[in-house]
Structure formats: C-alpha cells, structure tokens
Amino acid sequence: MPTIVSVDDSTVPGEGSSRLLLLVSSDNKHIVVEEDIMSRSRFISKQVEGFEATSQRHAILLPFSSFVLNKVIEYCSHYRGYYLLEDDPDAAPPGRSPVREWDQEFLDVDRNMLLRIIKAAHYLEIKSLVGSCARAIADMIRGKTTEEMREILGVENDFTPEEEHSPSSKCTG
C-alpha cells in the first residue's frame, strides 16, 4: 500500500468537469492526470471516494516507475469514456478476455515491460488491462516446450528427479 501524502490543494486544481489527480511513481515523478481518465482503475476510484468522504485531496503514491505508469495512463486515455465489460464492477466477468486490436499493438513490448504492466494493472485493479496483458503473455508461451516456457516465465525446475518421472506430476500430453 502506498502512503498518502497531503498536498496543498492549489497543486491539484480542478478544471472543467474533470478534476485532476496527482500520481507519484516509485521513481518520484509527479504526474498530473484528469480524474475521469483514471476512473477505469478500481483502486484509484476507491481512493477518490475516500477523498470525497474527507473532502481532502491527496497525491496517490504508486509502487511502480513513471515509465510503467505513463504506459498505463496511455491505455486509460485511449479508452477514456469507453465501456469495457471487464471493468464494470457490476457485470459478470467474461470467460476469457476479448481480443482488442489496439491492445495487441499497445502491448507489443518486451517481456519484462509486459510483466511490469500486468503487475501495475493488477495493483490499480484495471481488469481489462490485466486481461489483455495475460492474453499477450499466454501468446508468448503457447505451444512452447517445458524448457522454453521456463525460460520465458523465469521459472526454475524445482521437481525432484523422482517427481519428474512420475506420471502424476509430469504430464507431457
């Protein structure tokens, strides 16, 4: 959980219909963004509800870098005002994430970046983005051998030799 620091109200002035939020990344970059862009994030929405209850607005500290945060803001800006079923807290979640062409291009990044984005999206509770990243990661490992999957996932073989040869723990399909 990030700690919440109080900031002077004048640094986050309300403007027009959408108010501004101050987000602070782990590398201490201050990013001002319109509140309704970030409303897709359940985490941010809950923070804002908290602000309304106490009528005090704060900066929101986030445990990831500005590089990743900017990427998430880009995603949220693209879908600003769009209804995505997965982000509707009242809708039943779809079985699998739908394929969205824009997301595929947006997530055409290296493996580490993809993992950082999914982690940030999970933290911010943006279900649609978690789903799209999960789909992209699954695309990287689909059809690969055990060794290739270990390489991509950064996983070490921790089976004992007996387990490796027992059919219950090792099924090669």
Partner: peptide, 28 residues
C-alpha cells in the same frame, strides 16, 4: 513471474489450451 499474485498467474493460464497447460504443469 512466480512472485506474482496467484490471480495474475491464473489469468494468464486461463488463456492457454489444454496441451500448453499440461506442459506448463511440468515447468515447476
């Protein structure tokens, strides 16, 4: 990736076919 919360891992695995899931079981 193994340090990730389990629901992220599940979300990834949900996108895989049965054959890839079986191979995934043999990784760790």
């Amino acid at each position: 990736i193994l340090r990730f919360p389990e629901d992220i891992l599940l979300e990834i695995l949900t996108n895989l076919d049965s054959r890839s899931l079986l191979i995934c079981r043999t990784t760790c």
